[in-house]
Design a protein around this nucleic acid. Sequence first.
DNA 1: GGCCAGGACACCA
DNA 2: TGGTGTCATGGC
Length: 214
Amino acid sequence: MEVFDTLLKRYGALHWWPAETPFEVCVGAILTQNTNWLNVEKAIFNLKREGLLSPQALWEIDQERLADLIRPSGFFNVKSARLKDFIGWLLAGHGDLDAMFSGDWGALREELIGVRGIGRETCDSILLYAGGKPSFVVDAYTRRLFSRLGLVRESDSYEQVRSFFMGALPHDSALFNEFHALIVEHCKRHCRTKPLCDGCPLRPICPYPRLLGI
DNA sequence: GGCCAGGACACCA
DNA sequence: TGGTGTCATGGC
C-alpha cells in the first residue's frame, strides 16, 4: 500500500509496542485509553518500581492502591477497575496469557470484547501487540488520517474501518504492527486535530490541504 | 489557561 | 444506532 511504503520510508521501522512483555502491552493498552502515552509511561513506571507488573501481583493488591499508582494515566478509578476485571477474567478463564493466545484468535477476539473495559481497539491492540495475531488496530489517528485521505469515512464504524484494512492488506502481523505504529508516529507529527501539513510526506496524495486552502 | 491525548460505557431517545 | 455525558492527569 502506497501509504505504508511512504510512511516506512520517512520514519523507518518502529518495532512496536513500547513494552518489555506481553502483559505490559495489555496493561498499557488499557491505560492509554484516551490518554497521552507519556502519562501512561509514568503509571507503568510506578507499577514496575513496586514490582507489580504481573497478573498475580496486580490481582492481589487492592484496587485503591492500584488506582493511586496509575494516577498519572488519568481516569484512574475507571482504569483500576478495568485492569482488575481483565486480570480476573484472564486468571479465571485462561490462567495466563500464553494459554489465552493458544486457541483460535477470532473466538478470543469476541471473548475479549465482552470483557468490561476492553473495547474493540484495546482488544485488537492486545491481539496484535501482545499476541502477535494479525488483527488490524483502528484508533483515532487511523480514522483521522484515512478519512482525510478520502479512503474511509469519518462516520464509519470501527468494524467498517478495520474491514477496509483487513480486506486491502495481507494478513501479516508484522505488517499490521508496523503500519499502525507508523500511523501513530505520523499523526503525532502531522495529522493532529489542527493539521500540520508542512513537510508531510503524504501531502502529494492527500486532498486535505486543498480542502483547507493551504 | 485552554486544548488535547493511541476509549469505553451507561444512559437516553 | 446514534448522540451525549462521564471519567482525570499532565504536556504543550
